[in-house]
């Protein structure tokens, strides 16, 4: 078995966004902190958001509570990365 490799929160968020949106590595590498998510990306429906949260929990070994999830979290890519970074240091 190969060993588990640690992922940075930003790399994990980028990888999950890539999987959900079906983007190439180059396309998702262009995401900046200001890139808008909710509203700008119609693919991000409630099912996709649910999958995204569970994947982040799984890949970063964190637990996300219901009351931590609001619209602001998904406003921009930067918000989501900042949230993931905050969760891994908890």
């Amino acid at each position: 078995m190969h060993n588990k490799v640690e992922l940075t929160p930003e790399a994990a968020v980028r990888a999950v966004m890539r999987d959900i949106l079906g983007l190439s590595e180059e396309q998702v590498a262009e995401f900046t902190a200001e890139t808008e998510l909710f509203g700008a990306l119609p693919e991000l429906d409630s099912m996709a958001v649910a999958g995204l949260l569970t994947e982040l929990e799984d890949r970063l070994d964190i637990m996300i509570e219901d009351d931590e999830v609001d619209g602001e979290l998904f406003e921009t890519f930067g918000n989501l990365v900042a949230f993931a970074e905050m969760k891994v240091t908890e």
Binding site: M1, H2, K4, D19, I20, D45, M47, A48
Partner: peptide, 16 residues
């Protein structure tokens, strides 16, 4: 952990 890895994408997460 895995016995083997292959290139590809997580289609189960895809919105469509």
């Amino acid at each position: 952990p895995a016995d083997a890895q292959i290139p590809g994408s997580a289609l189960w997460l895809r919105a469509e």
